[in-house]
């Protein structure tokens, strides 16, 4: 199975700042992913790491902002920061709900913040930008796959699906920003480019599992059976991570550019519906219906 390949940045590409989105979190059930604690907490754990992660990405791109003379790239950076800021705020709102379920949101966020601050202090700027670029690649491949493989979110609550679809759309819109800054402004070579992604490939899932362990313990669901079944869902044949693998690997191709890979049709569909009445839930429902 190979990824479809395309030429370059789409013409007249725009990154659109959207705000004031309502996903009705108060009506979402606790185990919103098919009633399954492992699957739900997998996404919840990522959600907990997002706000600090997004702040980190913003700062790492902003390091280079003043060296950018191209006005188009400047605008892309500004919109990238706006979108990441919105994601952070929406996820913070969702994470508030987790707090009410007894999850130690504040303590975990604080720990995450300290780890990321240490990277900012102790590693060179090109490396933190490389981490950002790697992180953006991971979110972009999740985004493309979530939108085009409706079976992934088939069991999920449709409001949560809407939130992840919205997040996915915006991740795709700005997927090349950090990459372009790393290549063109920081002048990174091949090894500097892949260093961040390699590092995160091992550390990011590890952090997610650590957070999940805490969550499942709070839930009283942390049995061996849950974990084994869950890992099978992620790493088994046809598992979530296995579905992402081909697209993941494209990053290591020499001459890779984010716009060379990834289907775009579901995204256009989402934009058509969203642009008509500004309802992200309706847009998500339509995409899920159309592509199933």
């Amino acid at each position: 199975m190979s990824e479809p390949e395309r030429a370059a940045t789409p013409e007249n590409h725009q990154i659109v700042p959207r705000k004031d989105l309502d996903f009705q979190f108060d009506q979402v059930p606790k185990y919103w992913f098919g009633g399954d604690p492992f699957k739900t907490r997998f996404f919840d754990a990522m959600s907990m790491l997002f706000p600090e992660g997004e702040k980190f990405f913003i700062e790492c791109v902003r390091d280079y902002r003043d060296q950018v003379s191209d006005p188009v790239m400047q605008e892309h950076i500004r919109d990238f920061i706006f979108q990441e800021g919105q994601h952070g705020m929406v996820h913070t709102r969702f994470n508030d709900r987790l707090k009410k379920q007894g999850i130690e949101v504040d303590a975990i966020t604080q720990k995450n913040k300290e780890i990321l601050a240490a990277y900012r202090r102790r590693t060179p700027k090109w490396f933190t930008l490389s981490l950002t670029t790697g992180g953006e690649h991971m979110t972009a491949i999740m985004a493309h796959n979530f939108l085009h493989r409706p079976e992934i979110f088939a069991e999920a609550d449709h409001r949560m699906r809407a939130m992840y679809y919205w997040h996915a759309i915006e991740e795709i819109e700005h997927k090349a920003v950090a990459f372009d800054v790393l290549q063109k402004i920081a002048g990174a070579n091949y090894f500097q480019r892949i260093a961040g992604l390699l590092w995160e490939t091992f550390l990011f899932p590890f952090h997610v599992f650590l957070v999940m362990r805490h969550m499942l313990q709070v839930d009283g669901q942390s049995s061996w059976k849950t974990w084994i079944k869950g890992f099978w869902w992620l790493y088994g044949p046809g598992g979530l991570y296995m579905k992402l693998l081909p697209h993941y690997l494209t990053f290591y191709l020499p001459g890779f550019h984010p716009w060379r890979f990834g289907r775009m049709d579901a995204m256009r569909h989402w934009l058509d519906v969203y642009d008509k009445d500004g309802d992200p839930i309706a847009a998500g429902d339509t995409v899920a219906r159309t592509f199933s």
């Binding site: 706000p51 600090e52 997004e54 702040k55 913003i58 700062e59 902003r62 902002r65 003043d66 060296q67 400047q74 950076i77 500004r78 920061i81 706006f82 990441e84 800021g85 919105q86 952070g88 705020m89 913070t92 709102r93 994470n95 508030d96 949101v105 504040d106 966020t109 604080q110």
Partner: peptide, 28 residues
Amino acid sequence: YPDLHQQAELLVQQRLARQPLWHGTAAQ
């Protein structure tokens, strides 16, 4: 008040992104 604190920081980041760039060669 950690969650408000986090949201406030994201808003500041968005504001910083709208700031005009430092001009001049010395700044560069």
